[in-house]
């Protein structure tokens, strides 16, 4: 028996929007720890990892570990039927091949349930060891989204370089080149507007902009984004989900032939 009640139901809609461009089908894993997912994109270049901790739910009942295979587009179709202020409850019985999403309006005058068929998905879990990163950049998530969008109109790849001076995003394409430098800026009115660079040593890596743009679909989930870089390691782009957990994206770097 599984029953997860999330008062802030719109959060689940945002989580789906943050993943479905990258992943079609995925297994959601429920355990005492929380509601989680790890899935790779079809080209095995990028990976998304989600954790919504059990403490973040108003009610969290998970009698035994359960893995539920869902098509994210179908799940999104169902969640779009929930109002933005609705409370969402996810329910599943042991051994059944479906999951129920229950939507309650805030004043309890409308209650809807949508049952979705589950699917069998061969899950490929990757073991991601903890790593020391050479540079960690924290910046406003809207700024990062803007940079990725702007640069993708010029080129296909971005070189992200971190030095003492700041973080530089560079691209080149048929029509020309572009460089955007964000300097460390801690003296802002609101902490979420700060750009903070923790650098052990300078690092410069090349990534496909198409994937970074997909990651920025998580922007509505968090005011800030953390980008962790090390040479010869995939970049980790993390959006913290307030009081609940995170959505992390891993993207393998490009290498010169």
């Amino acid at each position: 028996m599984l029953e997860l009640r999330l008062v802030q139901g719109s959060l689940l809609k945002k989580v789906l929007d943050a993943m479905r461009e990258l992943v079609n089908d995925a297994n959601f894993d429920c355990s005492a720890t929380g509601f989680s997912l790890q899935a790779m994109d079809s080209s095995h270049v990028a990976l998304v990892a989600l954790l919504l901790r059990s403490e973040g739910f108003e009610h969290y009942r998970c009698d035994r570990n359960l893995s539920m295979g869902m098509n994210l587009n179908n799940m999104s179709k169902m969640l779009r039927c929930a109002g933005n202020d609705d409370i969402i409850t996810i329910k599943a019985d042991d051994g059944t091949d479906s999951v129920t999403f229950m939507f309650e309006s805030p004043n309890q005058d409308k209650i809807a349930d949508f049952e979705m068929k589950l699917m069998d998905i061969d899950s490929e879990h990757l073991g991601i060891p903890d790593a020391e990163y050479q540079a960690i950049v924290r910046m406003p998530s809207s700024e990062f989204a803007r940079i990725c969008k702007d640069l993708s109109s010029i080129g296909d790849t971005v070189v992200i370089s971190v030095t003492k001076e700041g973080v530089k995003f560079s691209t080149a394409g048929d029509i020309g080149t572009a460089n955007i430098v964000c300097r460390q800026n801690k003296t802002v009115d609101k902490p979420e507007e700060a750009t903070i660079i923790e650098m052990q040593e300078p690092v410069s890596l090349t990534f496909a902009l198409r994937y970074l743009n997909s990651f920025t679909k998580a922007t509505p989930l968090s005011d800030t984004v953390t980008i962790s870089l090390s040479s010869e390691l995939p970049v980790v782009v993390e959006y913290k989900i307030a009081e609940m957990g995170y959505i992390r994206y891993y993207l393998a770097p490009k290498i010169e032939e």
């Binding site: 095995h44 270049v45 879990h125 990757l126 790849t157 891993y250 393998a252 490009k254 290498i255 032939e257």
Partner: peptide
């Protein structure tokens, strides 16, 4: 253009 790495070059399947 640079070659695209695969994630499995870095992380192993578990």
């Amino acid at each position: 253009t640079p070659m695209q790495n695969d994630l499995e070059e870095f992380y192993s399947m578990v």
